[in-house]
């Protein structure tokens, strides 16, 4: 069984925007979409801009799909699947994330 690890308090989440967590020597962007009470976690590395900036993007939706737009060149990545809507050959790694006892938790992959 994979384990869940506490990352931060749920109050540390910024509503409708992202934060970046260090997790198993990776950078993970965690987004809390207050409007539909969803939590998402994807890799913080923008493969197009080649920089660790995804957590600073803006959350949006198109046709019911929730995405984050990279702050550098504005490509949109589906927050559930990590697939880039504009250039589908780019995919962000996704992580399992939840809130448990007022803590944000990520699930270990190992």
């Amino acid at each position: 069984m994979s384990q869940w690890f506490n990352i931060c308090k749920s109050e540390d989440l910024a509503p409708n925007s992202g934060i970046c967590a260090q997790f198993e020597s990776q950078q993970v962007a965690i987004f809390f979409c207050q409007r539909n009470q969803d939590l998402y976690a994807v890799s913080n590395f923008d493969p197009i801009a080649q920089a660790n900036v995804i957590s600073r993007g803006i959350i949006g939706s198109t046709q019911g799909e929730t995405y984050v737009a990279s702050p550098l060149y504005k490509q949109r990545f589906n927050l559930k699947t990590g697939v880039c809507l504009d250039l589908p050959e780019h995919v962000l790694k996704t992580y399992a994330v939840r809130i448990e006892a007022e803590h944000v938790q990520l699930q270990s992959i190992g």
């Binding site: 509503p15 925007s17 801009a49 900036v53 803006i58």
Partner: peptide, 22 residues
């Protein structure tokens, strides 16, 4: 302000101009 944060482009969000390496 909490209710304006999500509206800000990365520049306004951190009150600086984001550069190519973040």
């Amino acid at each position: 302000e909490d209710n304006h944060i999500e509206l800000q482009d990365s520049n306004d969000l951190y009150l600086g101009n984001i550069q190519k390496n973040g």
